[in-house]
Design a protein around this nucleic acid. Structure first.
Lengths: 181, 181
DNA sequence: CATATAGTTCAAGCTGTTTTGAACTGCATG
DNA sequence: CATGCAGTTCAAAACAGCTTGAACTATATG
């Protein structure tokens, strides 16, 4: 299964008693992985967000047990998505990184693009298949009706996705208010 | 990316002009893969559904270009989920398989279980992390508040999933009516 | 009960994705 | 302008999930 929704490997293994920081960081990693991003993108963001200060790539590498190259690539993605900011502190030789906005907003944006176009494409394929069947004298009425029903399946999926995105957009709004308390 | 939602490899490549059957079958494979199942589970179901007759494993193997072992396993899954029925025609040495119910119903059922428990687990992890932080004198009020905000993220996700499932349930209802036309 | 065919199992292989780490580039400093 | 460190790149390794196919078991038939 190369599934989209879903998670075979369950959640984070509970870590040490006092280690609530990595527990929270990993949990965010899991949420974001659920949304179709890399687990470590979520972990990096969560760590920066939790610490609430500009940290260097070297610190992230050490604290999150990532490789040098990995940190570089993860930060580039997060920066591109606008959820992490790169700042140069004066008198400091290296860049520092800072969590900027919340993740859900960005997740919704990205998912909106890729999931929608994907489902639309599937719907179009089914519609095309039905059109071809309608022109094929060998295709029975019943068969065409069955394709029609499969189209409904795809349509229902798309509709569900719409609601899903609308809800998350709504929730972001709600969260923003809370974030500004 | 081991993502859940989402699809890197885009959709089905359009096949031959007249080959609307495999086009439809592949499209269903893609929808069902989107829902986190195996692409070929969807293809097998769609093929059986479209043909609307009980077919042998050998026929599926040939028509869908699958291996013997693969067909066996795919059918076992579909049977277990109750969307494919195994029937023995009298005077026939081998089993035949028949599409039974619609897929969305089953998808919702399965997703309901695995996704929900997954997200609940994440929420629980975050709640636990916060509880630990609250007991840790070294943890600042601000940090605890930030974990609280991450919890909101997970809560929003769970809520979105609830709506998502509710909607698909609703759509199944609507589809059932149509299916019975 | 022997044989043939259907169906199952599972280790090995394949495919696609993520991570690593070594080589490289760029930049700031002495 | 040499040196060292920060940051990037990318090929290779590690990994995860899916599929294959050969060995196996079960079942029907003569």
């Amino acid at each position: 299964m190369k599934g989209y929704l879903w998670a075979p490997s369950a959640a984070t293994q509970l870590s040490e008693q006092g280690d609530w920081e990595s527990m929270a960081v990993d949990a965010v990693g899991n949420v974001i992985e659920f949304w179709g991003f890399k687990r470590n993108q979520g972990r990096v963001w969560a760590f920066l967000y939790l610490r609430d200060e500009a940290l260097t790539a070297a610190e992230l590498e050490k604290e999150l047990a990532l490789s040098k190259g990995g940190v570089s690539m993860l930060l580039r993605d997060l920066e591109r998505w606008g959820v992490v900011l790169r700042v140069r502190k004066q008198g400091d030789a290296s860049w520092r990184y800072k969590a900027e906005t919340d993740l859900l907003q960005m997740a919704r944006r990205v998912i909106e693009e890729r999931e929608f176009s994907f489902i639309s494409r599937i719907r179009a394929d089914l519609a095309q298949a039905r059109r071809l069947a309608e022109q094929d004298p060998a295709a029975s009425k019943a068969k065409i009706e069955r394709i029609r029903r499969m189209e409904l399946l795809a349509e229902a999926t798309e509709k569900a996705l719409t609601v899903f995105l609308k809800t998350s957009r709504f929730d972001v709004g709600a969260m923003f208010d809370l974030f500004r308390t």
